[in-house]
């Protein structure tokens, strides 16, 4: 189900059916209805469904669909009747940082910052350490959007918190307001290779690219991917299947292997929790405690060697909660 597409297929799809895509929910139902009705299509075309599958469909049945990036107004509203939610299973995370890598290359993130960062956590001296991948929590009571003076960062109806870097004035109020250090500031111009790769992209808050000096950026839950029915980069990039993503309204979350489970059941069975619940920010990211771990626990004394210019601050290792 999660096969990628080869080059020729991509070109073909691009030419033949990009314009003949379908709107996310209504379109999908339309297709299903058409298929179940078993009418014999006369003029067929290939279509891409929201979950990334290809159908042959009758041209007459299809609705026009604007390919991303969506307009600024649409990006601010979000997808109706969806509440996106992420579940991260600490028992499955082995700290390999594949999620971070997938995210970095997807969003062309510069090496000094990580939109999803894998922390080594230890709540107290006697408790067991564990790996803690941390994206943006897309809180339902977001401290960041509260303090934005120009509505450059905003909460959408599907729960996602985004940044409009064409409006951001760079006051960094949101950065100091975020208790999870999720936001990053573009202190300088993007690097030349980055400009070469992303400079010509058409900006949308859903794309977060091209990035601009003097504005804030953060994990965006890959809304452009979601619109295509695809999982965010970190979720599909997780080799351990530790990250689940889905729609809370559907009560289902899916991981990289395509295993879809009932969201409420998953939390119930594994005693799911949210990080720093007492702050009252109501995160949309849930965690499953590291019980019955299959992988070795993190070595809290090892310093990070992955980045050359890095340093771990051991004094801050102990965490609240």
């Amino acid at each position: 189900m999660n096969d990628d597409l080869n080059k020729s297929r991509r070109n073909f799809i691009k030419k033949a059916s990009l314009a003949a895509g379908i709107t996310l929910a209504a379109g999908a139902i339309g297709i299903e209805k058409f298929l179940s009705a078993k009418s014999v299509p006369k003029k067929k075309t290939l279509v891409l469904t929201p979950d990334g599958k290809v159908y042959q469909a009758n041209c007459g049945e299809l609705k026009e669909f604007n390919p991303p990036p969506v307009s600024n107004l649409e990006a601010r509203k979000g997808i109706p009747n969806k509440k996106f939610v992420m579940v991260i299973d600490e028992a499955k995370c082995d700290g390999c940082k594949a999620c971070t890598e997938a995210c970095q290359s997807m969003h062309f993130i510069e090496s000094d910052r990580e939109w999803i960062k894998v922390f080594k956590m230890q709540d107290s001296e006697s408790t067991s350490p564990y790996f803690f991948p941390k994206p943006c929590f897309h809180c339902d009571n977001p401290p960041c959007t509260k303090v934005c003076p120009v509505n450059a960062t905003f909460k959408r109806q599907d729960g996602i918190v985004l940044i409009d870097n064409e409006r951001c004035i760079g006051c960094r109020s949101c950065m100091v307001a975020c208790p999870y250090s999720t936001r990053f500031f573009n202190w300088s111009h993007p690097k030349a290779d980055q400009i070469a790769e992303t400079g010509n992209m058409q900006y949308s808050p859903e794309l977060s690219l091209p990035r601009r000096m003097g504005t804030v950026e953060k994990c965006d839950f890959c809304p452009d991917m979601i619109r295509k029915g695809l999982l965010p980069a970190c979720v599909s990039g997780c080799a351990m299947d530790a990250i689940y993503f889905g729609d809370q309204n559907e009560d289902a979350v899916t991981n990289a292997s395509g295993v879809t489970v009932k969201f409420s059941q998953l939390l119930e069975d594994n005693a799911g929790y949210r990080h720093l619940e007492d702050l009252g920010t109501e995160p949309r990211v849930y965690y499953l405690p590291p019980k019955n771990r299959k992988y070795p626990k993190p070595d809290m004394n090892a310093s990070g060697k992955e980045l050359n210019q890095t340093e771990m601050k051991m004094g801050d290792m102990r965490m609240s909660e």
């Binding site: 922390f119 208790p179 250090s181 702050l279 980045l307 340093e311 771990m312 290792m317 965490m319």
Partner: peptide
């Protein structure tokens, strides 16, 4: 300099 999340593996 004292955020809730620990400061780990960041540029010096």
């Amino acid at each position: 300099l004292h955020p809730f999340m620990p400061i780990q593996e960041v540029p010096k």
